[in-house]
Design a protein around this nucleic acid. Structure first.
Lengths: 103, 103
DNA sequence: TGAACATATGAAAATATGTTCATATGTTAC
DNA sequence: GTAACATATGAACATATTTTCATATGTTCA
């Protein structure tokens, strides 16, 4: 029988850095809250800010981080810009984490 | 039909902080590398350090973080202390992240 | 075009984080 | 007990990160 190799082989260093960078994005409560806020429906920046009772600027800065890491989708409609989670992938990562936290 | 509720309901603030803290642990390349290093077999602190070509102290500090977050198991055998990943849960979180990074 | 509104961004300040060095603690074997 | 080895830890330093403030950019509508 072949040896099972369940993603245990160490990936390239570069990939590991990317991986750490990805988790770093999830490692901030403001960004986590934003992600939950827009996980059901897209939302404008101001709406997110109001919803979390935080400054527009703070949200905008963090949305940029999410954007740069391709974790959110962006859609402009007139003056507002609507953000939503990029894909179910993102939700799954969060759910995995939640499982661990809640267990 | 009832409304589907796919973990989208915002958990308590406290839980969100814990969640962010958990991901924060994954958000450092040294810790990620340690986790990969011990994902197959348990390893002593010095072995991990040598394997990653880093200082014993650095590894020890980071292992503490992993310990505090219950991501590793610890076993003492004589002078050495052996670390291994706590459960498959941890691997799954990493794999989820890898999927996103590699896609 | 200009006023009003929504979002983005640069710089500064406050805080958090990671690594190193020196050293303490714990274990074994003599 | 003491020497030798393995690991842990505190303090200091360097770096990174988050938030705020002020302001720039982009859009709509009159």
């Amino acid at each position: 029988m072949e040896q099972k190799n369940t993603a245990n082989e160490m990936p390239d260093l570069e990939v590991l850095f990317e991986l750490a960078d990805l988790f770093k994005v999830f490692g901030d409560s403001t960004r986590i809250r934003i992600m939950f806020t827009i996980s059901d429906n897209e939302m404008s920046v101001l709406n997110i800010a109001e919803s979390l009772n935080m400054e527009q600027s703070t949200i905008s800065h963090q949305l940029r981080v999410l954007r740069q890491n391709k974790l959110v989708r962006v859609r402009r409609d007139g003056k507002q810009i609507y953000y939503s989670l990029d894909d179910d992938h993102v939700k799954k990562i969060i759910e995995m984490g939640l499982d661990h936290v809640l267990e």
